[in-house]
């Protein structure tokens, strides 16, 4: 299991369309292994042509199946599709079961579709970067449409879909007040609402709920996002949905202003990540930590000064 490929090699692989090396680079970047920043720096100028669609919604909304249907339709139109499917990590062990492929079996025979499962890993904002960076890698690799699918329950996951060009929120009938269940912050950034499993009773009520909520929340100068009913089982509404996504892709999603905002946001989160990682490094240094804890226990020191002292270490670490 000699995983010794240099980042240069992996980047070359991505540009030359080598799936295996590309998949490896995703791992390196996800793990923040040595060379990841260099690789991303090298890839950044080549990126920017793909459209990233973020799909979120409550558990059990049928996101994976819907994602699979959309991807299949896009592939039929000869578009190259990448999927990043996110599932939560166990807060106890840090492990995860990533089962989205289970619902996407129809895609496996489709060469143009690349699927990557990703766990949230519980890092502060970590997933957000990993997903965005992976999307960027897929972009340079030649994927034209990249779908990031995630459970809309954690803040991390909300942050991921925020990095998408087009945000789609999936609701279903029969989950009680499913509109209420949507994480705050998502409603405002959604470009499109989908009421999935529309073959089940109650779909129209959910559509009405969403519409009335939108009328309240959308500001006057904004256009009201559309609400589409779909049913994967009956292949209903998928064509319309894909048409909408493609139209939006043609128009181009982002104003210059919006794009600048997003770059700022990305820089801010990257900076946070850097700081967090450095702090973690200091935190892991047991000797210093042990020393400080002992001092505090003996009331020779206090946690406030100790943290300031640790910041000193952080600063010198940076130099």
């Amino acid at each position: 299991m000699a995983r010794t490929d240099s980042w240069e090699n992996l980047v070359k692989g991505v540009i030359n369309g080598d799936v295996r090396l590309m998949a490896r680079l995703i791992t390196v970047v996800e793990n923040r292994q040595p060379g990841w920043q260099e690789a991303m720096k090298r890839l950044y100028p080549e990126s920017g042509s793909a459209t990233v669609i973020g799909i979120t919604g409550s558990p059990g909304a049928g996101k994976s199946s819907l994602t699979a249907s959309i991807a299949l339709k896009l592939a039929e139109k000869n578009l190259k599709v990448g999927i990043i499917a996110v599932d939560p990590s166990s807060p106890f062990s840090g492990g995860a079961i990533l089962g989205d492929r289970l619902r996407m079996q129809k895609l496996f025979t489709c060469e143009q579709i690349f699927i990557r499962s990703m766990a949230t890993r519980g890092m502060l904002g970590g997933l957000c970067h990993a997903a965005r960076d992976s999307a960027r890698i897929l972009d340079v690799f030649g994927k034209e449409i990249i779908i990031i699918e995630t459970v809309g329950v954690g803040q991390d996951e909300v942050d991921i879909v925020k990095t998408a060009d087009q945000v789609m929120v999936v609701c279903v009938p029969g989950q009680g007040d499913s509109v209420q269940a949507i994480k705050a912050g998502i409603m405002e950034i959604a470009d499109l609402f989908v009421v999935n499993k529309a073959d089940k009773p109650g779909a129209d009520e959910v559509v009405a709920d969403i519409q009335s909520m939108l009328e309240l929340s959308v500001e006057a100068d904004q256009s009201i996002p559309s609400v589409i009913k779909t049913s994967v089982v009956n292949n209903q509404g998928i064509d319309e949905l894909v048409e909408q996504l493609l139209q939006a892709r043609q128009k181009g999603f982002l104003s210059r202003e919006k794009e600048s905002l997003r770059i700022r946001a990305e820089m801010k989160t990257l900076l946070e990540e850097e700081i967090f990682r450095t702090v973690s490094r200091v935190w892991q240094d047991n000797e210093i930590l042990e020393q400080l804890v002992m001092e505090i226990r003996e009331r020779k020191n206090d946690p406030y000064s100790a943290v300031q002292a640790m910041m000193q270490v952080y600063k010198s670490d940076k130099n």
């Binding site: 994976s64 199946s65 079961i97 089962g99 989205d100 289970l102 619902r103 079996q105 089982v233």
Partner: peptide, 8 residues
């Protein structure tokens, strides 16, 4: 009828 899709 479609084909059965497993649940996670």
């Amino acid at each position: 009828f479609g084909e059965y899709q497993q649940v996670k």
